[in-house]
Design a protein around this nucleic acid. Structure first.
Length: 727
DNA sequence: ATTTTCTATATTTTT
DNA sequence: TATAGAAAAT
């Protein structure tokens, strides 16, 4: 037996060494998913069952792809360059670059990231004089991407109402604009390559016979188009076709809002007649109590393929629960606790603070900062998304492809060179009538606009000529100087960081060059530049981070997926926040929130803290929330309350009912003083259940209180009418 | 062309 | 609260 297979448990071993048949691996959190995937590839190659070139391995993130390649080269003495390992979008890009003519694209086509796409849509609406109140650009973007992910071109979309008919027209116009400009968005990468193979049978046959093993990571996060894309390579699962090996966890599907469709797992099982469904249920990450809590939570979901994690490790510590009066108290407690952990010898980087939404990081950051504890926040602007970098990239893109109107519009007057709104409008109108790109329309323009714009075109032409033979980093450097970007930021008061980022872009170009080696086609001018630009679009770069330092990790639960920490604080466990109130309106929204909670809990190795606060500042005002229902789903026996637990159910029948008829009766009229009805007070209602008082108003028989009943909504109740129980 | 003032809006976000 | 984007003022 190969030494690759030692130290695998029996299910892992079974999965890794499966015959070339379709397989679905249901891999629970911390069950060794990545290990199984990479070992499977290594084993197939080492046993001579497949050549490296016969492997197609797909991941969602560049990080995951890089990690897979790194692990593979550690396991096998092979050159990984012939292997197709990458993200869906990266591989689609690779395909389209190789067959750009057949795909009806310019050789140096550019890739729009989400922000570029939005800008392109806004520009389109403006050019067509469409009211962007009626057709909000973001909504249109979502619509277009949704259609593409369903595999539908504009002509194939069924529209039953005028509104949708118009949106379809705009989808059509958007496509025409992209085609004219030689740009493709993320969804287009997939759809275009899918259609290419569908239309081009010899090409399809070629890839179908080349790839013998297709392996997919995070399969629960695939969208419909991605699934069909994969199915095409596997020849729809026909006899003799490639074997599909899909690894995923339906319980960790948390990207439905981005088009992910867990249904792909069931469809895969059915359509490919998958005989091998293997469950990896042994968890190597967390202690027993943590796993028990995770299992207890996820058990409440109805739509599951079914799985129960277990561990050989002991039950470990209880799960600690803290209730704060306000978000500030919660944050203060978190920071104190961290201080203690660090004093006990724990590394700060082994501690994670998780929250549902980014806005919640502020209070935590504030407390950490005042205590002088180093921390690192994930999320926010990434390198290639920064304004100055985007501007620089726009110049580079114009060199590679002058028809890219998005880039043209972005920098035609940045730095300002006297090309104001009037000139730009004249150009847009002319381009529209010529049905040509902005760049190519400039020579047709006369008068003052014509003159100033010609100056800009000359700048780009000069840049293209002067950089044609320059190595990539020097090319970038030259553009930064000649475009005037560097000078602009030098003169800006707060421009220092931006200048540094521009320098960083030159380094990024150098790194890129070093990584990919010599260009494949040295004759094509700027081919390397186009590759670099694709890289910039497909990999937005690391979130800003002071790497190296031993810092506490702050991130949303979403970005924590796939990570693990010795100690995890899951904060803000409140109704309305987690589960988020918006999710309750969506079908199956609550189940997705619960999966999110499951992800949060399973990040912890040794110690898990769960916390919530009675009041929290949100959008500038205090909100009063109930504790999250997910807390109630964890058996009490696993918990250790660090604060006294407030009654979960109302004791007895202590009705509180002020009555105008008998003002002197038992419940005193001055409720504020006696611990009766205060803001933040927990109350019970026969129909709406448990709630928390958010506001009070009026007095005597007019006295009203506003109560947040969580799922049942926020209600105003007249005290003289409503029966309220007081805890 | 640039600055200021206002107004709407506020989950999550691998590519 | 804070931020982005638009409208208005300079």
């Amino acid at each position: 037996m190969s030494d690759l297979l030692v130290n695998l448990n029996s299910e892992q071993l079974q999965a890794v060494s499966l015959p070339p048949q379709h397989a679905l691996i249901l891999a629970g959190a911390g069950s060794g998913k990545t290990r199984v995937l990479t070992t499977r590839i290594a084993w197939l190659i080492q046993t001579g069952q497949v050549e490296p070139s016969g492997v197609l391995a797909v991941t969602f993130t560049n990080k995951a792809a890089r990690e897979m390649l790194a692990r593979l080269s550690a396991m096998l003495p092979i050159n990984t360059r012939g292997m197709w390992v990458g993200t869906f979008h990266g591989l689609a890009n690779r395909l389209l670059r190789a067959h750009w003519r057949d795909a009806n694209l310019p050789q140096l086509f550019q890739i729009l990231d989400s922000a570029d796409q939005l800008a392109a849509i806004k520009r389109l609406l403006k050019a067509l004089n469409v009211d962007d109140e009626k057709f909000p650009p973001r909504e249109l973007q979502h619509f277009i991407n949704g259609q593409k992910e369903a595999g539908l071109r504009a002509h194939a979309v069924e529209a039953w109402d005028d509104y949708t008919r118009r949106r379809v027209e705009l989808y059509q116009e958007y496509e025409a604009q992209c085609q004219r400009e030689g740009v493709v968005d993320f969804a287009e990468l997939l759809l275009r390559s899918y259609e290419l193979l569908e239309r081009h049978e010899p090409l399809r046959r070629h890839y179908q016979s080349r790839f013998r093993h297709i392996l997919v990571d995070e399969f629960q996060d695939t969208n419909r188009l991605q699934y069909r894309w994969l199915r095409q390579f596997a020849d729809e699962g026909r006899e003799g076709a490639a074997a599909m090996f899909c690894v995923g966890d339906d319980d960790q599907s948390i990207y439905r809002f981005r088009g992910a469709d867990v249904g792909n797992m069931r469809d895969f099982e059915r359509e490919f007649r998958v005989a091998n469904v293997i469950r990896l249920e042994q968890n190597y990450r967390s202690h027993g109590n943590i796993l028990d809590a995770a299992n207890a939570i996820i058990r409440n979901n109805a739509n599951r393929l079914g799985k129960n994690l277990w561990t050989e490790q002991g039950e470990g510590e209880p799960i600690r629960v803290f209730e704060g009066y306000a978000d500030v108290d919660e944050a203060r407690w978190v920071v104190e606790e961290i201080g203690q952990l660090v004093r006990d010898g724990m590394s700060r980087s082994d501690i994670a603070l998780l929250y549902r939404s980014n806005a919640q990081s502020r209070v935590l950051e504030h407390q950490l900062f005042s205590s002088g504890i180093p921390y690192r926040v994930y999320g926010g602007l990434r390198f290639f998304e920064r304004q100055e970098v985007k501007h620089a990239l726009a110049y580079l893109r114009l060199i590679a492809n002058p028809d890219d109107d998005t880039s043209f519009a972005r920098v035609v007057n940045f730095p300002t060179r006297g090309i104001g709104a009037r000139s730009q409008e004249a150009l847009t109108d002319a381009a529209r009538t010529f049905n040509a790109s902005l760049y190519s329309t400039v020579p047709h323009l006369s008068g003052k606009p014509g003159a100033v714009l010609a100056g800009f075109v000359r700048l780009i032409e000069d840049l293209r000529r002067d950089t044609a033979k320059l190595p990539l980093p020097e090319l970038v450097d030259h553009v930064l100087d000649t475009s005037g970007l560097r000078a602009h930021y030098r003169n800006e008061k707060e421009g220092q960081d931006r200048l540094e980022n521009l320098d960083e872009l030159v380094s990024a170009a150098a790194n890129f060059l070093a990584e990919i080696g010599p260009p494949e086609d040295p004759d094509a001018d700027h081919a390397l530049l186009a590759d670099f630009l694709a890289h910039a679009s497909l990999e937005a770069g690391d979130h800003q981070a002071e790497a190296g330092a031993d810092a506490v990790q702050l991130m949303t639960v979403h970005s924590a997926k796939g990570l693990e920490f010795d100690v995890v604080f899951a904060t803000g466990l409140e109704e309305g926040l987690f589960p988020h109130e918006n999710s309750l309106l969506e079908t199956d929204g609550l189940e997705e929130e619960r999966r999110l909670m499951y992800v949060a809990v399973t990040r912890a190795r040794e110690r898990l803290y769960l916390s919530f606060a009675q009041s929290r500042m949100l959008h500038g005002q205090s909100r009063y929330n109930l504790k999250s229902r997910f807390l109630e789903e964890i058996p009490e026996t696993l918990l250790k309350w660090l604060t006294p637990q407030r009654a979960a159910t109302m004791p007895g029948n202590t009705y509180f009912r002020p009555s105008a008829a008998s003002p002197a009766a038992a419940p005193p009229p001055r409720r504020r003083d006696d611990g009766g009805l205060r803001v933040g007070q927990l109350v019970g209602h026969a129909r709406f259940g448990q709630g928390v008082i958010v506001a009070t108003e009026g007095a005597g028989s007019d006295a009203r209180v506003q109560v947040n009943f969580g799922a049942a909504g926020v209600k105003w109740l007249l005290l003289s009418v409503a029966k309220l129980e007081v805890a």
